[in-house]
């Protein structure tokens, strides 16, 4: 069986900058052999000079990237993308502005031919608080924050420092993301958005990642992320033992864990220190979600899964 295809989900509400980021990705010279699945061709500036071939729902660009529309069924369009020979080297799916990126990530969690890479969620720093309070879409905007592995706080130029700091803390309090980028016009280093699968064997750089909020962007491409979701609850004693025993290659972990008898807690782990505090309002209840960031030398995904599953009880979440 061929190696599973890395699968990245790009989420965030309408206007957060997904299209801008997609345009950056599509224009990047190194994007070759990636299939980019979008909701709407029309808004992308696919430069005619970059188009090598066009047919119906897909455009092949000169850099080797294939861009196609999802239409009304991700199931169907993903089947088409995966039927191509050869398979794409990587797939990036733009989740609709009202989709829960976690449910899109499930495609890769379930299919053996896909491997979940990262869930990237863009946030409009100026609008996010209002979005989360909106009667029609507030619930979904909050789900999107919770589902992120990587947050891109966009439109940083539109807010002043005080608002940016306050909004960032508010958003991070409601997200499991282990890394946050602040950006203007979605300008983030593209290598940082995809796991370094090709470089997995590379030795970790000697670098202090503990203050990840400030860590230089050009180093993020040397770390791995791994995420875990469950609807069962965690046992506090076993979780604490797990956290105390994590290898040093795990640099950071964050998430919302439903503790038996206690309810949903925010978990923060940085280096050797961790805290568990009640999760704020707005974080969707009924499930736990954990994101881990580490050097390429941290335990393999399957081993991390075994470790974390060991702290989970058989009971469903509260």
């Amino acid at each position: 069986m061929p190696a599973p295809v890395p699968f990245t989900v790009l989420g965030g509400y309408l206007g957060a900058g997904k299209t801008t980021l997609l345009n950056r990705i599509l224009a990047a010279p190194g994007a070759g052999d990636m299939a980019v699945m979008v909701n709407d061709f029309g808004r992308l500036n696919i430069d005619a000079e970059l188009v090598a071939a066009q047919g119906g729902r897909a455009v092949r660009l000169e850099n080797g990237c294939v861009c196609c529309t999802i239409g009304d069924s991700l199931v169907e369009s993903l089947m088409q993308v995966m039927a191509a020979t050869p398979r794409p080297a990587r797939i990036l799916v733009e989740a609709s502005g009202v989709a829960d990126p976690a449910r899109v990530a499930d495609f890769a969690r379930l299919s053996p031919s896909l491997r979940l890479d990262r869930v990237i969620v863009l946030v409009d720093l100026e609008q996010i608080r209002a979005r989360c309070a909106d009667r029609h879409v507030g619930d979904m905007a909050l789900k999107q924050l919770a589902a992120a592995d990587v947050l891109v706080l966009n439109k940083a130029d539109l807010v002043d420092d005080a608002a940016r700091t306050e909004t960032r803390a508010w958003v991070e309090g409601r997200s499991a993301a282990v890394v946050t980028f602040e950006a203007t016009r979605a300008d983030v280093p593209l290598a940082a958005l995809f796991a370094p699968s090709e470089r997995a064997g590379q030795a970790p750089r000697d670098h202090d990642h503990n203050r990840n909020h400030d860590h230089p962007h050009d180093d993020f491409d040397a770390v791995r992320t791994w995420s875990f979701e469950t609807r069962r609850v965690f046992d506090r004693a076993r979780l604490e033992a797990l956290l105390d025993g994590l290898p040093p290659a795990v640099l950071r972990a964050k998430g919302f864990v439903d503790l038996a008898g206690e309810g949903l807690m925010t978990l923060q782990l940085t280096g050797r220190r961790w805290t568990l505090e009640p999760a704020p309002d707005g974080v969707p209840r009924g499930q736990s979600r954990l994101v881990v960031l580490g050097t390429p030398g941290m335990p393999a995904d399957a081993d991390l899964r075994r470790l974390v599953t060991g702290a989970v009880t058989g009971s469903p979440a509260t």
């Binding site: 199931v75 449910r103 899109v104 379930l110 875990f228 469950t230 499930q287 599953t309 058989g314």
Partner: peptide, 23 residues
């Protein structure tokens, strides 16, 4: 070991074969 939203598990923890969601 599959902890994915739409996969139903039985009391033995094994997937029952019933599932939901597009994934």
């Amino acid at each position: 070991d599959t902890d994915v939203h739409g996969v139903f598990k039985g009391p033995d923890g094994e997937p029952t074969g019933e599932m939901q969601e597009f994934a």
